[in-house]
Simulated assay, not measured.
Amino acid sequence: MDTDPIVEAGAVYKTYDTGSVRVDALRGIQLRVDRGEMVAVMGPSGCGKTTLLNCLSGLDSIDGGEVRIEGRSLASMSDRQRTDYRARRMGFVFQFYNLMPVLSAVENVELPLLVARVPMRDARRRALEALSLVGLEARARHVPDELSGGQRQRVTIARALVNDPAIVWADEPTGDLDSEGADETVELMRRLNDERGLTFVVVTHDISVGRRMDRIVRMLDGAVVEEQLMEVTHVRATDAA
């Protein structure tokens, strides 16, 4: 069966030049992520993992090569088009949650929809549905300080899902969690992949996280040096259909 690539990176270069220091952050990256795949990007600190995620998602520009998402070149889009595309088709999960402390869980989740001018009633309904997906509907009215670390990360995942994205980018999503919270977070992402076919690209230092993905991409000094397929022990809803 043919696979459908959602991300294609060809000979991608990224350089940071301060005038006195030049850093080749990405050096000729070749990478493909198929729709419905879970990919871990691993490597030592400073090897370019977060830079790669930012460049693949269009948060940062590249200096050479091409990035295509769902068959469309990011370079062909204007800044406004890239911003709109991210809002409609991408979700983001970060290490430190980035939740508004004065807003409840449901208010944090619905915020991207309100910014996108989705009607308030529809935004609230979709936010509650997203919280239900991550098992937090009972905590919808709680502010972040009333939630555990694992629960806060589930709120960020709900926020990433609320626009029904094609792909979710996660940068060290378990980095600020204890082992129980980290396990819950990875299990949730795995379940969302199994049941909804959601694509994840996950930057992580944690090998126990990497081993629960479909593939590990290892980086060193701005280059991909190894790709390792993990043993598949789950069945996605899209595979079973």
Rank of each mutant, 00 (worst) to 15 (best):
L99Q: 07
V162N: 02
E66V: 13
R215K: 13
A170D: 06
A25G: 01
M120V: 15
F96Y: 12
D221C: 04
D84E: 15
T3Y: 09
L59R: 03
V106F: 02
G175T: 11
V21K: 10
M100H: 06
D24R: 09
A75K: 06
M100W: 09
G181D: 09
R141S: 14
C47V: 11
E231H: 06
E37V: 10
D214G: 07
G210C: 08
A127S: 10
Q81L: 07
I157E: 07
N108Q: 12
R89M: 13
M120A: 15
A158W: 01
A166E: 12
P165L: 10
V23E: 02
A75E: 05
A182H: 01
E70H: 08
R72Q: 15
A40W: 06
Q151F: 03
L74Q: 08
S148D: 08
D122M: 11
D171A: 10
R117H: 12
P144Q: 07
D176P: 00
V39I: 14
A223G: 10
R159L: 05
R212A: 08
V33L: 06
D24Y: 02
A158C: 08
R159G: 06
R80G: 07
G135F: 05
V106Q: 12
A170P: 02
K14F: 05
L131F: 03
D214P: 00
